[in-house]
Structures are given as C-alpha cells and as structure tokens.
Design a protein around this nucleic acid. Structure first.
Lengths: 343, 343
DNA sequence: CAATGGCTTGATAGCGCTGTCAATCATCGT
DNA sequence: ACGATGATTGACAGCGCTATCAAGCCATTG
C-alpha cells in the first residue's frame, strides 16, 4: 500500500499530479508558471490541487531549486516608530508576491548585524534589505558575496553595496537648521540621543549649517547614547536650558525628543515658540496635533519600504533598474513651534 | 572530479565530515546535539566546520526532519506601538534559540488571518503565535489541525485553542473606570477608535463599571472604526465635549487617543484635570512625560512576547507547562490627569 | 510534402540533510 | 574473564520538489 499522504496528512505534488492525470513536473509548473501549461491541463491541475487542499512544501522547493523565496530584512530596532513605517511599506509591497519577509533585529549593533548576515548567507535569500550604510568591512564582504540583490535603506551615500534607497540625513538636518535661521532664530541648540550613524549625520548637518552662519557653539549641543524616548527629551532640554539659558531654539534629533522637549517647556513655563522654538525630525503623526503644533522634517518612510521591495523585485526578476540609488528626499513641515521670531 | 562545494560556493555537511574524518551523520549530530558526541570528535567537527565556514542548509534540514525551526507570529498591525513591544519580547526571547521568527500582518482582518494560517500550515512551523481570541471557526480548525503548539496572545478567555497569555481587557477597563469613580468623577466619557475585539471588551468594561454605579450614559460614548491616531483623539474629544459639555472625565481606548485628547484640551483651554480628567490605556512611555502627566493602565506587553515564546519552547521541547493560560495582569498608574476631584 | 521551429510535456536524477536501526566500542560487576 | 549495559557511531534510504534535457506535437513554410 503506497503512501497517499505525507506523514502530517498533507497531500504532495505527486498526488495532485496523479489526480490531474499529468506528470509531477507538469503539476510543478502549474504553481510556478501557469502560463506555460495548456488550458486543459491547467484546469485539471488547479481543481486537483483544490480538491486535495494542496500546499507546496517550501523546504523541498528551496532545496531543489537552490533559491528560497525569502527576503531578509535587517533593522536596528523594533520599537522605533520610524522602522515600523518602513516595515509596513515592506510588508505591503511584498504581499501577494511569492516572497516572504524574514525580519531580524540588529539592535544597533554592527556585530549583531554581521552575525545575522552570516546566518542569512546560509539561507540563500532571494533578496536582502539592510539598514544604513555603515556596515563593517566583513559585513560588506558577506553582502557582496551573497548571490542575491541587496538594498541599503534609510540613507544614501557613495559606494552602494548594490542598491540604495533613502535620503541624505546631513542635507535634511542642514535644511532644518536653515529653516530655523530663516525664521530668525540665532542660538540654536541640538538635542541628540542614541547617536547612531544617521543621528550623527543629522548632527553634522546641524553643525555645518550653524558654522556656515558662524553661529555654531559646542555648548549648545546636548547628546547621549541612551535610546531616544519622550522622557529623555525632557531631561535633555533641562540640561540644555540650564547650561545655556539664552538659547532661542532647539533642533531635536527626532520627534520623540521634540515632544519630550515640548512637555518640559510646558513644565518650566517656557513659551513655545516665543521663548524657545522647537523642531523635530521625521514628522510622526503627533507633531501636527501638539499644542503648539511642532515643526518637523517629513521623511518618506513607508515609501522607502515599498521602494526597497520594488527594487529587489525588479532585480530578482532580472530587470534591475539602472538607477541603483534612489533619493526619496525630505520636506520641511513648518508649524507653530517655529513661527517667525518677533524682533 | 567530485564536487567539493555546492554551486553557490558553500561547503556541505559531507565536506565537513570528510575533513573531520567522521561520517556525515556524526557531523550532523554535532550541530543538533553536540553532547552526544565524544569530546575528540566534537572538537574535530567543530574545527572542520569553522575552517570551511560551514553554514547548515535549513531547507534540507527541514525537508529531511519534517519540521522547520520557524515560529510564525500573526499580529494585526505593524505600526501600533503595543505590538512593537510584544514583538521585542518575542525577538529577544527567541534570540540564541534555534528558532527563527516569521512575522505576518493580518491588518485586523479575520479573513487575512485565515489566509495566512493556511500558508503557515503548509510550512510546518515549530510553533505559532496568534493575536487575540476571536479567530474564525475555520481559523480555529486550522490551528487545531496544526501539529505544533499555539499561543494566543494579548488577551485571555475561555477555550484556548492550545495556550494563552494576556490579560482581561474587560477587567482592566473596569478597574480604570473604577479608579476614575473613586477619584470623584461622575460623568465619564469613552473615546474609542478601531474598535477591534479587544477595544470592544475595553468598552464593555467601561460600560459595566458605569452601569454598576448607575452612571452609564450612551451619549458619553464616542467611537469610530478608523485606526487610532493622536490627531483622531483630538477630533473624538471635540465630538464629545460638543455633544456632552458637562462631561468631567474621559476614558480613552488607548494612549494615542488620550494624548490627542490632552492636546485638544490645551487647544480649547479645558483645564486637565480640573475641568476634565483624562485616562489612557497601555501606559506608553510618553504618558508620564505629558503635562499634566497622564493616568493610564500599564500592560505587560514585552513580557507577553517573552512569555509566549517561553510557553512555545517548553511545549516544543516536550515539557509543556500544565498552566495553559497565563494572566499577566495590569496595573492602574495614577497620575496628575486623574487627580482626586475637588468638591 | 518534408522540413522547420515553437510550444507543451515527461523521464531522470538529484538538492543536502536526517530518521531509523543496527553495529561497534568502552566500561563494569561478578 | 565474560557477558551486560549504555554510550557512540555509521549505513542506508528517502524527505518533496525542480533543473535539465529530450521527446512529442502541431502549425507553418518553401
């Protein structure tokens, strides 16, 4: 008596083929490229598969075909809202495609990233998305050796491993600070947390904009390596105003810090923006609701996730875009918290 | 000339075994249960593997062993902070174990969930985590038929499919409203968005607490099916105060709505808590920073993710806990926004 | 009418690993 | 010294699918 079902009770391709009256390989083709079958066989295989409730065994497929249908995604944090927007784009764009997403958390550690890349390397992913452009030399080597397309997201820079989609954090921060300067603010502080590579580049944009105006002052910079949180924004602002009471604006490394700074101003009865302008970064949804509404820099995070998958899909289907680096740009969203300074 | 490397240039188990001077199956055991080898062979296999940079082929392993090392996780949203905390727990707890996480987004759709479960079913996961207890009958059937442990998370209730970890949203909301009652508030509104099953149970807890005090009034309830956002909290509060100007407190279905409500009060010059108390749900980090600080209900989301993985691990290793349902409870965090009402 | 070429189908031979079960080895008690 | 016991080890077969290549089929063409 021959097996009709796999041990766990599931039908195999062979059974589907037998029921449809075709060879297994023809049934196999039905699932991968239905257009290659004649209409009659296509229908027969389809109904046979439905009747048996057939679900392909991905492990067998991967083993036989030497390529998985997994797209690996490495991000540094699961709690940072910024990445959840990117992920939403990634999951939305990959839905309906045959690819599935394998998410991994590097926790802002290059070594952890390298370790995860080694694991992915063994899994022959169909594509890979990594965060940022500051991989270790070993990580870059693994990425180049990985025979699948790779997209670096969140920022852009020279020498992509393969492809890139993001924007210039340096330029965005430069534009943000320029906005504050245009609005008449002169003593502009910087509140920074985490200070990952992208945060550092935002700091550099801040510094360069102020240096260009001969207004940079190291005493106006307050940073910490602790992760960004709203409460932390409050403590950073406290440090700043105690150290430099004459400050008239703060550029915050992100919106959580900006919100914490706003709350701290409310607590200290510092009028925003009359006594202190506040500017954030990322333009999370709550920025528009705050009182006063908070100025920020809008970044296209959801679009970044989508675009990364699109770039991978194009490359995986053999038609890579000649445009290897996509700049999604940014936009200054001016709100009440950076109203023009009264003279 | 025989193959020394796989097509993609990676060493196989056979090569490792040959270099170590053992049989392939012994090398295989080294990776799955090193303790079963003699010390000498263990060392030889280990150094051979390192020398060749061997990485196991997971597809082959899954195919041969009839079980993958994937834990499927189904959550309804990627942007909701609540789930990112749970996910962090999940990823943290699974790190270092041999299991990898496969995340999927149901977008609050039961049908989408069912579709995803069917796909997972074909992948023979080692374990499965699903959100909530309101699966369709078909989904429950698939879950029961899945020969792996299953944990339902976020809430608890009768008739677990297999295991559960969460808390009672009904009880938590009841306790929240009781807190407001104790503090002297009498006309307590409800602001609700999304209204997924857990949100509905929070509403029920609210309703029951007020009915018990004979204070329930349908006109104090403002809900929408739109997803929760901070701006939405503002509009809901506007609706409420226009419909029921004599309201003296609001219980918000979550903290985003509560924050939006607070901002709207600031905009409308409604003093919090003197004219209106505000209470949220989940106790996200910003609640403590807000001015005034916002009362909320703390839920153990990170712990929930960890615990779910622990329960799965125990079951997968054949030592399931007899305790199939874990109640992680909740805690009322009283802050300024619900200060005792002055007479 | 045979030759041509495009389209569809099938047979064969593995992919890299592990389940099973038997064989071998070291150690021990009497 | 002998078998008994448990710890190690290995041979074999096959997991469910697809790459490859060859064969069959049909319509078209000079």
């Amino acid at each position: 008596m021959d097996r009709k079902r796999t041990s766990s009770g599931k039908a195999r391709l062979t059974e589907v083929a037998k029921l449809a009256g075709v060879s297994p390989i023809t049934a196999s083709r039905f699932f991968r490229n239905p257009a290659a079958l004649s209409a009659s066989k296509r229908e027969r295989v389809e109904s046979a598969a439905r009747e048996l409730g057939y679900v392909p065994n991905l492990a067998a497929r991967t083993l036989a075909s030497h390529r998985s249908e997994v797209i690996g995604v490495l991000i540094p944090s699961l709690t940072n809202n910024v990445f959840s927007d990117v992920l939403r784009g990634v999951y939305d764009a990959s839905e309906g495609s045959r690819y599935s997403i394998q998410l991994a958390n590097t926790r802002y550690s290059n070594l952890q990233e390298e370790r995860l890349l080694r694991i992915f390397h063994g899994q022959k992913p169909a594509g890979l998305i990594v965060t940022g452009i500051n991989q270790t030399e070993d990580s870059r080597a693994i990425l180049r050796n990985m025979d699948c397309p790779v997209v670096q997201i969140m920022e852009i820079g020279p020498e992509p491993v393969d492809m890139m989609v993001g924007f210039s954090h340096n330029d965005a921060a430069f534009a943000a600070v320029s906005h504050l300067l245009e609005r008449g603010y002169r003593r502009i502080g910087f509140l920074g947390a985490r200070m990952d590579p992208r945060g550092q580049r935002r700091f550099e944009g801040y510094r360069d904009a102020l240096k260009a105006a001969s207004l940079f002052d190291q005493r106006h910079v307050v940073t910490t390596l602790s992760p960004s949180t709203v409460p932390l924004g409050g403590s950073l602002l406290s440090d700043l105003v105690e150290r430099a009471p004459d400050i008239d604006a703060v550029f915050c490394i992100n919106d959580d810090i900006a919100l914490g700074a706003l709350f701290e101003c409310q607590r200290r009865q510092i009028a925003v923006p009359e006594q202190l302008a506040i500017m954030g970064f990322n333009d999370l949804e709550f920025m528009a609701s705050a009182v006063p509404s908070l100025t920020s820099v809008r970044t296209n995070r959801y679009e970044m996730g989508r675009k990364a998958i699109e770039m991978l899909s194009a490359a995986m289907s053999g038609t890579p875009s000649p445009q290897r680096v996509t700049d999604l740009g940014f936009e200054i969203i001016a709100r009440e918290s950076s109203a023009p300074r009264r003279a």
